[in-house]
Design a binder for these strands. Structure first.
Lengths: 196, 196, 196, 196
DNA sequence: TATGAATGAGCATTCATTCAT
DNA sequence: TATGAATGAATGCTCATTCAT
């Protein structure tokens, strides 16, 4: 099992279990997503999950890695392709919300994990997210696109806006994410731009 | 036990239990805050909590009501006292973050409850919070202080910024909330004001 | 539960559970003596054992403490009452085997625990037992009753003889422990006495 | 698989598995020496062990047979070569402790098995060991080398002394087994010899 | 022969709740 | 009012074993 090499079947099972775990987390919430329920959903026995992942912690780790990769693959290249900080910021909103639109269940699963893992390592990942945003902001200030504001509060506001979306998505599944992305872009474009 | 009338002792007990529950939630997190631990902290027996509150759900309800009242009492009068929408929005940030500064444990307890009770009624309370913000925004648009933007996305951004703070507070207890409030005010002042 | 004070009922339950645990260990052996089986034997639920003892480890600790006290109370005063080292050594055998005769199940339970706890603290207690024997031997050498032999090997032989008894007792429940004690006394009397 | 005939490969595999089981038992203790761990150590799969040995019980049987043969081959010829009962007794200690010195891991594995398998047949093997000792003792009494003592208690003491050694070896790996053998010989020489 | 996958039973523990006193 | 005792369900996990390939 030590991640050295894996058989085809093993990979298939792992993928299946991860999918079902995501479904369980998104549908039932963290607390109800017990090994037993995940197993039931996967139509296998609970022991088999431990066999493939070693334990619940590692299963959760695997889910996080899976979803983060999904998000990263979608977002990072498109953000990096921008040539101005203002564009990067706009695309930051666009890609984040596009990810939520295309991968609703993985998103909700990730949110469940993060919010229930206060002391764990995922809670601390928010610092990384903040730092990434601050890089873009610093870039824009350096090029003169952005006005001279303290980075941290702006980053908190931006990240807060993005993080707020899944909660509203849960209440209103028909929320128009494309329009929302455009509006958030505008909001923070106005807030960051060199004041006329 | 139903809230009909309550003796003085009953009220005192309830208050004591609510306080200890808040402490337990803020200190240990939702999962570790079991009835047994809350009882231990309150120096009473678990059974007595059930006796006074009927069960854990109602205890949590009572905690939420308590904290919400705490926050409302602090914030609402000061927001309502403003004479311009722009001021109201500024004070919205100021009072929200002042509440976090003055009542850190109740705040953290509330956050724990909301994030762990996804299907419960508290998650839906965010709709109310949004509506309140929208009222202020509509007011500002009506008076011409604010430009003409769709209400919902702006409200989501504002509420998101506020909701993001507790998470960062947890990571960095020395976070300067007064400065942060001022900066967030500036951010959304720029985003909402009639574009020059 | 913190051992501060205990109610009468609590003490009774604890005693009952300890008794049943001893019976389970002596009858079924360590591996089969699961919490579930002990609970079944005690006609209570497994959870209640955890309620009273906190967990299996503490239950085992309590059993050990109980049996050790039983043995100590029986043996130590009588050994200390002897005025010659030779007598003390004789009474050491007598009391050890009398304990086995009077408290067969507690003895077997203790043996089960010790042999299954190789890395735990009980395995290390054998060093204490050896040191106690060596004290008596040194005493006898000092008074000139005993010849001049190295202490450790003799202590190992003596303790080994005593420790061997429970195993044979298990195979042959009718083993005559009084005669055996007398014979072991003779063996080590001859081995230790000043050679004529 | 039944022991009818075995191919060369089969025998090699069995030997390899037995070796690894011994290592696992000696290193990790009985409880941790699960089929999975033994398989991991053997660099094969758990299923294969069952295939070769039918199950864990038979694997343990095979380990016991292997170690007992190891011990027997080392000890029995040298004991039988003695011409006096006193010499045989001395060599009994010498060869037993030499076996422990030369084959520490097999010894510890055997001890683990015996102590954890109380109801299994190995516990009853001690009867055989006792009978062997008694033969030597009877021989010595018959030749007049030994005094007239009851056989069983003396045999218990002798076997007890030998059985005590591994436990102390575990606590103190530097225990000098050659000196210990000499001292134990002396002890039981004094205890058995015709009293002057 | 050998593997990897899968099962099912058993384990200790935690928890909200109930109830007689 | 308040307690301490007790329950029953659920949780994550480990293990020996089985079986198709």
């Amino acid at each position: 099992m030590a991640s050295g090499e894996r058989t085809f079947t093993e990979d298939a099972r792992r993928a299946q279990i991860i999918d079902c775990t995501i479904k369980a987390l998104a549908t039932l919430g963290y607390r109800q997503a017990s090994m037993a329920r995940i197993a039931e959903l996967s139509k296998i026995t609970p022991g088999l999950i431990s066999y493939h992942f070693g334990g619940k912690d590692e299963l959760i780790d695997a889910v996080v890695a899976h979803v983060v990769k999904l998000a990263t693959d979608l977002m990072v290249p498109r953000i990096l392709a921008q040539t101005t900080a203002a564009d990067a910021l706009r695309v930051y909103f666009e890609t984040n919300l596009e990810f939520m639109r295309l991968h609703r269940e993985p998103l909700l699963a990730l949110v469940e994990i993060i919010t229930h893992d206060r002391d764990g390592p995922y809670a601390k990942q928010q610092e990384t997210a903040l730092a990434d945003i601050e890089k873009v902001l610093a870039w824009g200030q350096h090029t003169g696109e952005f006005r001279d504001f303290p980075l941290r509060p702006m980053a908190i506001a931006i990240r807060g806006a993005v993080d707020a979306v899944p909660g509203h998505l849960l209440n209103d599944p028909d929320l128009d994410l494309r329009t929302l992305a455009a509006e958030l872009s505008t909001v923070f474009s106005l807030a960051t731009r060199r004041t006329p």
